[in-house]
Nucleic acid binder design. Structure first.
Lengths: 152, 152
DNA sequence: ACGGTTAGTTCAGATACTGAACTTACACCG
DNA sequence: CGGTGTAAGTTCAGTATCTGAACTAACCGT
């Protein structure tokens, strides 16, 4: 199966992969969540090749994660902004960064994440929308126990 | 910059990418979280080429996400099991699947996720470990506002 | 006129992926 | 005994993708 056909798999994880299943794409989204909007900004920060940055930005726009806007007419200049769909990736990146910080051996500079509601540094905790209690690997089941297409 | 050098970037997202920043790897982890352990099981479900499945499994073992265990001596047969580090990816996949289900247009079969603590189907909500309130893109700040290396 | 900025595109050479066949080592069946 | 099946890979030729560097276009400031 080709990369380009992943989007035909009826699984939410595979669908997500068809949009953000690439390291450079994720780094671009990370930068966008931090406030980057310009092509060169993405290129310098990710250090991906210019061709890859251009291709990934086009793909993100195509999937409705980012919007390409002209901010200057002469000369024509564009910038990339996250859409609501793109901003909704924030929890994904945050939980991923937390996994990295707590599970991987190599030290990374702390992200210094702070919750403005309470003012504290914090760890993201995934909870149940119904009862509010934390969700762990052990307290989850799936309705169709062993279906054909994957899910997580 | 090469893919193989991502792990030198001192950013937790980049570090995560160096381990799971690949679509096939994520699908393998998804299957493992569902209970798959065998090479052929991963290959059939992901439909990646056998060479890629072998390479990705080796990489996951190398990064301590999975363990390779011999479960039969004659003929030698191995299986792959998630380590604690691998099981800790469950929230990442779950939040990602939720993003996919709520944000992407293409319909995917519902994952039918159920919380055994309360017995209900649920959506994962990322909350603050300190105050317990939901965390959104708007209620987060970062201590070093515009550092050199990325974070999210 | 000269250099700088922004957003790309182009290209040759290197790297990675695909699909299929092949391998090893056994088990089961008649 | 020979054939088929299973499990976990490996190998290979052809194809696709990525890298790094240079180049383009259209302006600005001095």
């Amino acid at each position: 199966m080709r990369w380009s056909e992943i989007d035909t798999v009826p699984c939410p994880v595979a669908q997500a992969m068809s949009v953000i299943g690439d390291a450079w794409t994720m780094l671009i989204v990370r930068d966008a969540l931090r406030g980057s909007t310009r092509f060169d900004e993405f290129q310098r920060s990710t250090r991906a090749s210019r061709a890859v940055v251009a291709e990934r930005l086009t793909r993100l726009v195509h999937h409705g994660v980012m919007e390409r806007k002209q901010y200057e007419a002469h000369p024509p200049r564009h910038e990339y902004q996250l859409t609501a769909r793109g901003r909704a990736l924030q929890p994904v990146l945050m939980v991923m960064a937390h996994w990295s910080e707590t599970q991987l051996p190599k030290p990374t500079r702390s992200t210094g994440r702070r919750h403005t509601t309470c003012g504290h540094a914090f760890a993201p905790v995934v909870t149940c929308s119904d009862c509010g209690e934390p969700v762990t690997h052990e307290t989850i089941t799936y309705d169709r126990p062993r279906g054909s297409a994957g899910r997580a």
